[in-house]
Design a binder for these strands. Structure first.
Length: 355
DNA sequence: TCTACTATCACATTTGAACTGA
DNA sequence: ATCAGTTCAAATGTGATAGTAG
């Protein structure tokens, strides 16, 4: 079998691979948390994937949106996450288009794609095009490869969707699990700088460092336990920034060009206990914003949720079903047709125009 | 009282315009 | 005139804290 098995997903001839999978898994084992703020916060780890099998000269748009991982909200009680009721109604659905979009397949396959500049917010009135999430709810990113040369045709173009279970996270306004804080500080240069600077400046910011070391307390995120140390090996990732790009603002705020940061992250896997997300399929209520709506997408996915720890399950895909079966929600037949166009859904990607 | 959220802090990293030289 | 480097000031991003709101 081929090496790229674990962190990549294949649909037809198109393969998507999660770039910084080690890091994602490190977080996932503890229970990933992503800070969301009023003005928008970047993700860490970043969404970074590579794609292969595209037609070199065909144009594609690549987008991300965030899908609720379940129908619940949570609270951090003592040292673990607990169920805290039913999920709030979905905030306006938004998606983030990779700033290189649209680009030919050859471009996308040339290097990994980073969604570094995507920001998450809890502000439902956000005017900046950031992705709106509910705090204390769980989500996972979903990547869309859309074969079109115009953002305005996204809704009608054939597309494929990919997602990785180890990217599931809980949106929070402040970190809950100190293990997560520590992992982030170990790997995120900004966080590290800030923390160390703060400790320097003394006094008021001193306590936290104690807090983290005492943060070695036992954390049980409702799952088989057995928790080990986080490696303090500060194998910080090198953000391999290459060439600065210049283009500023596209027709939409969230379309600003960014430079690609393909990260090579070699954090060794942590021997932490499993994190049990009890996720289940869920329909997203339709809603309209000035951005895209993704609600109809839900009906074309099939899922293998409920992440057991085996390697096989770390890769799975939400594949659009064909026209016939889509209405019924989940279809488990993949037609792995050699010609990739046969695998592409012709169904409109977004049900409403949001521009 | 408890939980969730927010503004603020200080500084390394990133950005990008200005500059230099070929 | 154009390009590739270089420099450097300004902008950005980051977690903890103290405080606010409910």
């Amino acid at each position: 079998m081929l090496p790229p098995a674990a962190d990549s997903i294949q649909q037809g001839s198109i393969r998507m691979t999660l770039e910084n999978a080690h890091l994602w898994k490190s977080f996932h084992n503890i229970g990933t948390e992503m800070i969301i703020t009023k003005h928008g916060r970047r993700m860490f780890p970043h969404c970074s994937v590579s794609v292969s099998g595209l037609q070199p000269f065909a144009k594609y748009i690549i987008m991300v949106d965030m899908i609720p991982a379940d129908t619940f909200k949570y609270k951090w009680k003592k040292e673990q996450w607990e169920w805290a009721g039913k999920a709030e109604p979905q905030p306006p659905c938004r998606s983030y288009m990779h700033p290189d979009s649209p680009a030919p397949g050859s471009h996308w396959m040339k290097q990994s794609l980073s969604f570094l500049k995507m920001k998450l917010t809890n502000n439902t009135l956000d005017q900046h095009g950031h992705i709106i999430l509910h705090s204390m709810h769980r989500y996972y990113p979903r990547f869309h490869v859309i074969q079109t040369d115009s953002p305005y045709l996204v809704r009608w173009a054939p597309f494929l969707s990919f997602s990785f279970p180890e990217m599931t996270f809980t949106a929070v306004t402040a970190y809950q699990n100190p293990k997560i804080t520590k992992l982030k500080i170990d790997h995120n240069p900004f966080a590290k700088a800030f923390r160390e600077g703060g400790t320097h400046s003394q006094g008021k910011r001193c306590r936290p460092s104690e807090k983290t070391s005492s943060g070695d307390r036992k954390i049980v995120c409702k799952g088989p336990s057995g928790l080990q140390r986080t490696p303090s090996s500060t194998q910080s990732e090198e953000a391999d920034k290459s060439h600065a790009q210049t283009m500023k603002q596209g027709p939409h705020p969230s379309w600003s060009k960014e430079q690609d940061a393909s990260e090579s992250l070699h954090g060794e896997p942590l021997d932490l206990h499993e994190y049990d997300y009890s996720c289940e399929e869920q329909m997203v209520p339709a809603s309209v914003t000035y951005q895209h709506d993704r609600s109809d997408l839900r009906s074309v996915e099939y899922t293998r949720f409920g992440f057991p720890s085996s390697e096989a399950d770390t890769s799975y895909a939400f594949a659009p079903a064909d026209q016939g079966t889509r209405q019924h929600g989940s279809s488990h037949h993949h037609h792995h047709h050699p010609s990739n166009t046969a695998d592409w859904s012709q169904y409109p990607l977004f049900s409403y125009s949001c521009w």
